[in-house]
């Protein structure tokens, strides 16, 4: 289970990085972004088969949550709590 959540977390951060690229340069990562989004959707669907309480990945982290290690791990703790209380 952790594997799926970790991969989802990584994909979310990957997409945040892609979003930080200026529009005029985004074309070079367009395909990578589409693949990441597709893979994220699949992982999330698989996760929801057993764990219906997980919010949509778009709600896992705000930009602010990724601005500090402390805020990030507070969110990770919440995600881990969902696994502990399915």
């Amino acid at each position: 289970m952790l594997f799926e959540i970790q991969n989802i977390v990584h994909l979310i951060t990957l997409l945040k990085l892609y979003e930080s690229i200026p529009d005029e340069k985004k074309n070079s990562i367009r395909v990578k972004k589409l693949n990441a989004k597709k893979y994220l959707r699949s992982l999330y669907s698989a996760l929801c088969v057993d764990y219906k309480k997980f919010p949509q990945p778009t709600d896992w982290f705000s930009k602010q949550d990724l601005s500090s290690l402390e805020a990030y791990f507070q969110k990770i703790e919440k995600l881990l709590t969902i696994i502990d209380n399915p």
Binding site: Q6, V9, H10, T13, L14, K16, L17, L66, L69, Y72, F73, I76
Partner: peptide, 8 residues
Amino acid sequence: FIRFYDEY
């Protein structure tokens, strides 16, 4: 999780 945040 540590690794992915560090990499981010």
